[in-house]
């Protein structure tokens, strides 16, 4: 599904040197690392936001390294969620479908279905500025999922949620995964990883230290963060 091959990235003085990993179809894969470890940089490189110095990114046997951002079909949910403040929730979720030239009645039907699936149908006419934290998260997720991305990229989507909302979102992500969605999730929160992950890579200062299933990593931790993993 996703193959990151010998990726070299640089942002200012910070470097991600020669990084390789792969995410299989239907897999829930975590990049676990502390703040500033380079995990978001890798995610942005896959999405086409961050310039790749060298290396390749493949999705579904297609080399997307040099594809423009809008042609990559990898859906990124930003840490800041990046909902368009000037559009209603309905228009936010409809955005990817409208860009593909789909006619409004069909767009509306799909948006309503997606909103019902994520329990946000009641906020469709509202602007993002009026939503609660949990609703924000769900709208951002709905907007990305409606484009049926080959790969869902999640950049710390749970970091700003309180404990109850976090549990709710974890359940939602588990459900999405069970429905077959391939997910690459970056986080520093080792507590949510164990119950969701098929595989995990631990990243520190831009370097992948350890990759394996939660059980493999927990039984043979190679760093402090890995030793804290709850399986």
């Amino acid at each position: 599904m996703l193959y990151v091959k010998n990726l070299n990235l640089q942002a200012g003085d910070f470097k991600v040197p020669d990084t390789s990993f792969d995410v299989k179809k239907g897999e829930y894969y975590f990049l676990l690392g502390e703040s500033g470890s380079g995990k978001s940089l890798i995610l942005e490189a896959i999405a086409g936001i961050q310039k790749i110095k060298s290396g390749e990114v493949w999705v579904n046997n297609l080399n997307i390294t040099h594809l423009p951002m809008h042609q990559r079909r990898v859906g990124l949910v930003f840490q800041s969620l990046a909902l368009f403040p000037h559009l209603t929730v309905m228009d936010n979720i409809a955005f990817p479908l409208q860009r593909r030239g789909i006619k409004w009645p069909q767009v509306e039907k799909e948006v309503v279905q997606m909103a019902q699936r994520l329990s946000i149908a009641h906020v469709l006419k509202r602007k993002p500025g009026t939503l609660s934290g949990g609703e924000h998260q769900r709208v951002a997720l709905a907007r990305t999922l409606i484009m049926k991305p080959d790969m869902l990229l999640l950049d710390e989507p749970l970091s700003s949620l309180d404990i109850l909302l976090k549990e709710e979102m974890v359940e939602l992500l588990r459900e999405l995964h069970q429905q077959g969605q391939t997910i690459l999730h970056v986080t520093h929160d080792y507590r949510v990883v164990g119950s969701l992950a098929n595989r995990i890579s631990i990243i520190q200062k831009g370097i992948l230290l350890q990759t394996g299933t939660p059980q493999e990593i927990a039984s043979n931790p190679k760093c402090k963060l890995a030793s804290r993993l709850v399986v």
């Binding site: 951002m69 800041s80 368009f84 593909r100």
Partner: peptide, 23 residues
């Protein structure tokens, strides 16, 4: 403008021109 909004638009399939006019 928060650049992430423009990046989000392009990630959601909008070309640069569409991102300019819609976001």
């Amino acid at each position: 403008i928060d650049k992430r909004l423009e990046h989000a638009a392009m990630n959601l399939g909008a070309s640069q021109m569409q991102t300019f006019f819609r976001v």
